[in-house]
Amino acid sequence: MISNAKIARINELAAKAKAGVITEEEKAEQQKLRQEYLK
């Protein structure tokens, strides 16, 4: 099960992506976390 901290990070990265200020490194982290969440 995914931790609350990881869910919070997913939401934080989603907000950054929506604002258009996300880095390529953060995009990769976001994809990794989303895949983990979906498992």
Rank of each mutant, 00 (worst) to 15 (best):
Y37L: 13
N11Q: 14
A5R: 10
E25V: 06
Q31C: 15
M1G: 13
K32P: 00
N4P: 15
E36I: 05
G20A: 03
K16M: 05
A19M: 09
I10G: 03
E36M: 07
A28I: 13
E36D: 08
K39V: 11
L33W: 03
A19L: 12
E12C: 06
A17Y: 07
K16F: 03
L13C: 01
K27R: 12
K32L: 14
A17T: 06
K18G: 05
Q31E: 15
A19V: 07
E25R: 07
A19I: 07
Q35P: 01
R9H: 02
N11I: 15
A17Q: 11
K6I: 15
Q35I: 13
G20C: 07
K27Q: 08
A19P: 00
I2D: 08
N4T: 14
T23Y: 01
N11G: 07
I22M: 07
E26C: 03
A28T: 10
G20W: 01
K18L: 13
L33M: 03
K39A: 15
K32R: 14
A8P: 03
A19R: 08
E12Y: 07
I2V: 08
Q35W: 14
L13W: 01
Q31A: 13
K16D: 00
A28R: 13
N4I: 15
L33D: 00
N11A: 13
E29A: 03
R9K: 03
K18P: 00
A5C: 13
Q30F: 15
I22S: 02
G20D: 03
R9E: 01
I7G: 03
Y37S: 06
E26R: 00
I10H: 04
L13Q: 01
Y37D: 06
E12W: 04
L38I: 10
A5M: 09
R34I: 15
Q35T: 08
E36A: 05
K32F: 12
L33P: 00
G20E: 03
T23C: 04
I7T: 05
R9M: 02
E36T: 04
A19Q: 09
N11W: 15
Q30R: 11
A8C: 14
E25S: 09
G20V: 02
A5N: 10
Q31G: 05
Q35K: 12
A5P: 09
N11R: 15
V21Y: 05
V21A: 07
E29H: 01
G20N: 04
R34L: 15
Q31L: 13
E24H: 06
A5Y: 05
A19T: 07
K6M: 15
I10E: 02
I22V: 02
A28V: 10
L38Y: 14
A14E: 13
L33G: 01
L38M: 13
L13S: 01
I7P: 03
Q35E: 14
N4K: 15
N11V: 13
N4Q: 14
E24A: 10
V21L: 12
Q30K: 04
K27W: 08
A8Y: 05
N11S: 09
Q30I: 13
A15S: 07
M1Q: 12
A19W: 08
T23R: 03
A8D: 09
V21F: 07
R9P: 00
A5E: 11
R34Y: 14
Q35C: 15
K18H: 09
I7H: 05
A8L: 12
K39G: 14
L13E: 01
K16L: 11
K39N: 15
A8V: 09
A5K: 09
A15Q: 11
Y37E: 06
A14Y: 07
Q31W: 09
I10K: 03
M1F: 13
I2A: 09
R9F: 02
N11M: 15
K39I: 12
E12R: 04
Q30P: 00
R9G: 01
V21D: 08
R34N: 07
E24S: 06
M1P: 13
T23K: 02
E12N: 04
E25M: 07
G20K: 04
K18I: 11
S3V: 08
K18V: 10
L13M: 01
A15K: 10
E29F: 03
N4Y: 04
M1D: 09
L33H: 03
A15G: 05
A14M: 12
